[in-house]
Each structure stands twice: as structure tokens, then as C-alpha cells.
Simulated assay, not measured.
Amino acid sequence: MGQLFYGNDPEPIVIEDRALAHLKVVIATKLRRNESFTLSWRHPSDENPGRTTIWLHPSIPLRFVFGDPDSPELSAEWITAMAHSANSSGGIMLLEEHLDGE
């Protein structure tokens, strides 16, 4: 499992490595353009029901930590879907991966 450390909060946001790798590409692209946006996700089934949203801004510290030392093969389709959501008024919604052809 991967971890996303946001701001000065010592508690990470836990995200599966493959999803975090795709999310990193989209977030890095937006922040490199000096764009601010939100990131939302549904709480895992083992937590209280609901969802969380955070505001991402280039000045807020952000760190990606991966459990697997090898980078996964990235899906252009998944990155595009997340990038489209990033450009909407609702911001990035951490979407499930839909493999090509499914």
C-alpha cells in the first residue's frame, strides 16, 4: 500500500500503490502548472462511511510513498479519466481503474 502525506499531518492517506502512481501523474501535472484543485475519495469499507476532500495547492507539502519499489505500468486511460475529473469543478475523484476493453 502507498501513502500520501499531505501538509504537516503526520497521518498518511493510504492508497493502493497502483492507484497512487496514477494519481501522482495527474497531481504533478496540475501542480507543475501552478493549479490548485480538490482531491476526493470514498472511505474504505473498514472505516466510517463517507468521503473526504482535501484542497491541493502548490505551496502545501505533498509526499508520495510507495510500498512496492518497482513502478507499475501506467494506464493512459485511467490517467485521462482522472485528469478530466481534475479539470472539473468537483476536482479529482479517485476513480477505480477500468482496464482497456472493459
Results as ranks from 00 to 15, higher is better:
Arg32Ala: 15
Val14Ile: 15
Gly2Glu: 05
Thr29Met: 03
Pro69Asn: 14
His22Met: 10
Glu35Ile: 12
Ala76Ser: 13
Glu96Trp: 00
Asp70Gln: 14
Leu74Gln: 01
Met82Tyr: 02
Ser59Leu: 10
Asp17Leu: 10
Trp78Leu: 03
Leu95Gln: 14
Ala86Val: 09
Thr53Met: 07
Arg63Ala: 11
Ser36Phe: 04
Ile27Ser: 01
Glu47His: 10
Arg51Thr: 03
Leu56Ile: 09
Thr53Pro: 02
Pro44Phe: 06
Leu20Val: 11
Glu47Met: 14
Ser45Gln: 14
Trp55Gly: 09
Phe5Ala: 05
Asn8Asp: 13
Phe66Ala: 02
Glu16Trp: 07
Glu73Asn: 08
Leu31Pro: 02
Val65Ile: 11
Leu56Trp: 02
Arg51Ser: 14
Ala83Gly: 12
Trp78Met: 04
Gly67Met: 05
Asp17Glu: 09
Asp70His: 12
Asp70Phe: 06
Met93Pro: 07
Trp41Val: 13
Glu97Ser: 08
Gly67Tyr: 01
Ser40Ala: 14
Leu56Lys: 00
Ser36Arg: 13
Leu39Pro: 10
Val26Gln: 01
Pro12Asp: 01
Glu102Leu: 11
Ile15Pro: 05
Glu73Gln: 13
His98Asp: 12
Tyr6Gln: 03
Leu99Trp: 12
Glu77Val: 11
His84Lys: 14
Gly101Arg: 04
Pro12Asn: 05
Pro44Cys: 06
Phe37Asp: 14
Pro49Cys: 04
Asp100His: 07
Glu11Met: 10
Gly2Pro: 06
Ser36Pro: 01
Ile54Thr: 03
Asp17Arg: 02
Thr80Met: 10
Glu11Lys: 15
Val26Phe: 02
Ser85Cys: 08
Val26Ser: 03
Leu23Arg: 02
Asp46Ser: 13
Asp9Thr: 13
Met1Gly: 04
Arg18Pro: 06
Ser88Asn: 03
His43Trp: 01
Gly67Asp: 14
Arg18Asn: 15
Ile79Asn: 05
Glu73Gly: 02
Ser85Gly: 02
Ser36Asn: 07
His98Pro: 06
Ser71Lys: 15
Pro69Gly: 10
Asp17Phe: 06
Val25Phe: 00
Ile27Leu: 07
Pro12Trp: 05
Ser45Leu: 11
Phe66Trp: 06
Gln3Glu: 15
Ser85Glu: 07
Arg63Val: 08
Glu77Gly: 15
Tyr6Cys: 06
Ile15His: 00
Asp70Arg: 14
Tyr6Met: 07
Gly91Trp: 08
Ile60His: 03
Ala21Asp: 01
Met1Thr: 09
Gly7Glu: 02
Glu35Lys: 15
Arg51Pro: 00
Thr38Ala: 04
Val25Lys: 04
Ser36Asp: 11
Phe5Gly: 08
Glu11Cys: 07
Trp55Leu: 13
Ser89His: 13
Asp68Pro: 00
Asp46Asn: 13
Phe66Ile: 12
Leu74Asp: 03
Ile60Glu: 04
Asp9Phe: 01
Glu73Cys: 04
Ser75Asn: 09
Thr29Val: 06
Leu95Lys: 10
Asn87Gln: 11
Arg63Leu: 09
Ser40Ile: 01
Ala81Asn: 02
Ser75Asp: 14
Ala19Ser: 14
Ala76Asp: 13
Pro44Ile: 11
Leu74Arg: 03
Thr29Ile: 02
Ala21Asn: 00
Asn34Ala: 11
His22Lys: 05
Asp68His: 07
His98Ala: 08
Pro49Leu: 06
His43Ile: 00
Lys30Arg: 15
Leu95Trp: 03
Phe64Arg: 03
Arg33Pro: 00
